[in-house]
Nucleic acid binder design. Structure first.
Lengths: 222, 222
DNA sequence: CGGGATTTTGATTCCAATCAAGTCCGGTGG
DNA sequence: CCACCGGACTTGATTGGAATCAAAATCCCG
């Protein structure tokens, strides 16, 4: 289910700016929504009536297996689009890793991706292409790679997304990282400790990671 | 590099039919190409000037790591589009698993995905969406799953694609399967043998797999 | 048939999972 | 301001599943 629309008075300006930027570009105008940390945006199996463009915060999309295991498919940050799917229903659930603001776009039932507007068509294509690339990179990170290669790859990936490419501040827990990399929380922790011992990274706090030796980190990511 | 265009006299009819079907739909008209088994269609790093729609055969896209490991990102069958990327160059290589026939489409340098044609725009979007979904499913198949879950998932995936959903004829080697699932060839073989002992599948020959107990196979895929 | 590639099977090793304590915060209330 | 609580994280000991190393069997194709 998609949660109720909140008025969000305290974020009015930001939301307004975002809407204006896209005004007229899409047939189904978006509405601004806010989700607190750990709240579910949609669940697997929900009707995929909406997709979302994240304004602020971090979102994770995940799949829950019958035995309770959780796999995280992707993390999304400001500017990313998620919940954008070809099918009738969401194949993954989406949860707020941190407090999040996003714009929801309604899909048209009959033909979800029909559009008369060239700019909007093009934007949809870009969303899909980015999603494809991200998912492919994730597959490559998971297949037959050691714990060290996975963790190093993860750090490099986030380094690129952050303002200072040598300093990462993680929004997610070790458990989130583990579920994204197909490892256990203990292995993620041990691997980070190993990197710290080798002076490849520094850990001023658990969620703050300084990349001290980018070259070596890239070596380790293979 | 993209190989030279071959006249392909012996397949003229098939190719002609395919082109006519799409005639006028795309701004850059496609040219038919043929690749023999194990030939490279493009390599990682090549200019992504073309993308391809497969008419017949099976293609694998893969990434080679510095130490010689190979990861297969995806297999493509007739009707699938591959080599369709946002960037300037191919991030993966593509090779013919079997003899293949395909249509190559040239991208326009300035704006690779600009299009005045609504039907063609829509088709590009569908390609990207399918690619995204396939890559996401692959990620989910790789993350923290046992060898048995991976192999069972792989079999179910191919069962869906084949005409008879209870009989698969594999175009690829065990090595290909292993590189796709992030396992070794020995583990793939052992797992298939295990499934045969348990009467979940039958292996009349190495490349022919009969699914004897679909329900149990779905159980095992978790 | 013969020969090479592909696949299967077997023995052993090793990396990451599991099981099990600790430790380190960040927040809360005394 | 500090003691304490609980969740997040780290570290240690052991186990287990898949990799590796090694060899045999099978399948194709000429």
């Amino acid at each position: 289910m998609v949660a109720h629309l909140s008025p969000l008075a305290e974020r009015g300006n930001q939301a307004q700016a975002f809407l204006e930027q896209d005004a007229g570009a899409q047939p189904a105008m978006g509405s601004v929504q806010h989700f607190a940390q750990d709240r579910e945006v949609f669940a697997q199996g929900d009707d995929a009536d909406y997709f979302f463009k994240l304004v602020s915060g971090v979102i994770r999309t995940c799949k829950f297996l019958a035995d309770g295991r959780r796999q995280i498919d992707a993390f999304y940050v400001a500017g990313d689009v998620f919940g954008f799917e070809p099918g009738e229903e969401h194949r993954l659930s989406a949860e707020a890793v941190t407090d999040c603001t996003m714009v929801a776009y309604r899909k048209i039932k009959a033909d979800p991706f029909a559009s008369t507007d060239r700019r909007w068509s093009r934007e949809l294509l870009d969303f899909a292409m980015r999603g494809m690339t991200q998912a492919q990179n994730h597959s490559l990170l998971l297949g037959r790679r050691s714990a060290m290669e996975k963790v190093a790859g993860f750090l490099l990936d986030w380094a690129q997304r952050s303002a200072d490419h040598r300093q990462i501040s993680l929004a997610m827990t070790r458990q989130d990282i583990a579920d994204y990399l197909g490892l256990t929380i203990e292995t993620v922790s041990r691997t980070l400790s190993q990197l710290e011992r080798d002076h490849v990274i520094a850990l001023p706090s658990a969620r703050q990671i300084k990349l001290c030796n980018l070259d070596q980190l890239e070596e380790l990511a293979a």
